[in-house]
C-alpha cells in the first residue's frame, strides 16, 4: 500500500534534478504505510499506528529492452529505506537486468533502452542532467562473482574513498568498512597482501567492504552468494542482515530460502503472457511465502514451477 505525499506526484510533476531546492528531500518524499503482515494472517486487526516508511526508489512502468528484445516490462514498485528487498524468480525473467537499472549499470551498452521511470528520492534516475558517476556513488553494487581488484586488501577498500577525495582518516575508514563487512579480524594482519589471495567468501566480503567504504545510500546485491559455499553464504547472509541498519538493500537471489531468511519485502519476477519478464507480485516476505495472492507465485515458492 503506497501513499504519495500530497505535494508530490511524480507523473504530473517530474522532478527537476538540477533544481537547487535544498529541501527537495523533504518535499519529494514518498512514503509507504507498513502494515505488519501478522495483522492480516491472524485475522484480527490490531490497531497499531502504521509505521511510516520512506521510499528510496519508486519504479513506474519500467521496461528494459536490448535492441528489439524486451528483457523486462511493466515493473511498478517502491523500495523502502533501510529494509532488505529481495527479488526472486526463475532465471531469464529480468531480475538482474532490473537490478542493474537501479544504478544505471546498463549505461553504455549499445542498443539498450530504458522506458518508464525510476525515481530515486524523487529524482528521475534517467532524467536529463543526471550524472551516472554520482548515481553509482550513492547506489553501490556487489556482483555475483567476487571481483576484487588485483591490489592489496587495503587498497581495494581505500581506492574509492581516495577517488572521492575522502583522504583524511583513511585508515580508520578502511578499518570501519572492513569491520562493517565482518572481515577485519581475518585480514587485519595482512592488509598489504594481495586481495586475490583471499578465499571466495572473503573476497565477496571484501567487495562489500569496498562498497560500504564510501558510505553509499543503497546497496544492490546481485546474487552475492551464488558462487560461494554454504558456510561462506551463511556469513554473507549474516552480514547483509547487519547492514540493513545503515543501508537500503536490494538483493537478487536464486535461493528462495535465502530470500525468506533475509528479506523484509520480496518481489517475485516471472514471465507474463508475452513471455517477457515482469513483476508478478510484491509484498511482505511472509505474505509472499505463506499466502501469496498470485498462483504463479505460489507455484514458484512451493516448488511446483521452476
Amino acid at each position: 500500500m503506497t501513499i504519495l505525499d500530497p505535494e508530490f506526484d511524480p507523473i504530473m510533476e517530474p522532478s527537476r534534478p538540477a533544481a537547487p531546492a535544498r529541501s527537495a528531500g523533504e518535499r519529494y518524499r514518498i512514503q509507504t504505510v507498513d502494515r505488519p503482515a501478522r495483522t492480516a494472517s491472524h485475522g484480527q486487526p490490531t490497531p497499531t499506528t502504521p509505521v511510516v516508511r520512506e521510499s528510496v526508489f519508486k519504479v513506474e512502468q519500467l521496461a528494459i529492452s536490448y535492441g528489439s528484445k524486451t528483457a523486462v516490462q511493466g515493473v511498478t514498485m517502491g523500495i523502502d529505506r533501510n529494509r532488505i528487498t529481495a527479488i526472486i524468480g526463475p532465471s531469464g525473467c529480468g531480475k538482474t537486468t532490473f537490478l542493474r537499472s537501479l544504478n544505471r549499470m546498463h549505461d553504455g551498452i549499445p542498443g539498450l533502452r530504458v522506458d518508464g521511470h525510476i525515481y530515486y528520492h524523487g529524482h528521475d534516475l534517467y532524467g536529463s542532467g543526471v550524472d551516472r558517476v554520482e548515481v553509482r556513488r550513492r547506489i553501490g553494487m556487489v556482483f555475483q562473482k567476487p571481483n576484487p581488484f588485483p591490489k592489496s586488501i587495503y587498497d581495494n577498500v581505500a581506492w574509492a574513498p581516495r577517488n572521492l577525495g575522502l583522504r583524511s582518516g583513511l585508515d580508520d575508514r578502511v578499518e570501519k568498512a572492513l569491520r562493517g563487512a565482518a572481515l577485519w579480524d581475518e585480514v587485519k594482519d595482512r592488509l598489504k597482501d594481495s586481495a586475490l589471495g583471499l578465499s571466495g567468501g572473503q573476497q565477496q566480503r571484501l567487495c562489500i567492504a569496498r562498497a560500504i567504504a564510501i558510505e553509499p545510500d543503497v546497496l544492490l546485491l546481485d546474487e552475492p552468494a551464488s558462487a560461494l559455499d554454504p558456510i561462506a553464504t551463511a556469513s554473507i547472509e549474516e552480514l547483509v542482515r547487519t547492514l540493513k541498519a545503515k543501508f537500503t538493500i536490494v538483493i537478487v537471489t536464486h535461493n528462495m530460502q535465502q530470500a525468506a531468511r533475509l528479506a523484509d519485502r520480496t518481489a517475485f519476477f516471472g514471465l507474463d503472457n508475452e513471455r517477457i519478464g515482469t513483476l508478478i507480485e510484491y509484498d511482505e516476505t511472509d505474505k509472499i511465502f505463506t499466502n501469496p495472492a498470485d498462483t504463479r507465485t505460489e507455484d514458484y515458492v512451493t516448488g511446483r514451477f521452476v
Binding site: 522532478s15 527537476r16 534534478p17 538540477a18 533544481a19 537547487p20 527537495a24 528531500g25 523533504e26 519529494y28 528510496v56 533501510n82 530515486y120 528520492h121 524523487g122 529524482h123 534516475l125 532524467g127 542532467g129 543526471v130 550524472d131 558517476v133 554520482e134 548515481v135 556513488r137 550513492r138 577517488n163 572521492l164 577525495g165 575522502l166 558510505e215 553509499p216 545510500d217 541498519a245 545503515k246
Partner: peptide, 21 residues
C-alpha cells in the same frame, strides 16, 4: 545511521569535487 557526507535527496548531478574529477 546515514552517511554524513551524503544527502541522498540532493539532485543527482555532479557537484563539488566531482566536477573537477
Amino acid at each position: 545511521g546515514l552517511p554524513p557526507e551524503l544527502d541522498p535527496a540532493r539532485p543527482l548531478v555532479a557537484s563539488g569535487n566531482l566536477r573537477r574529477r
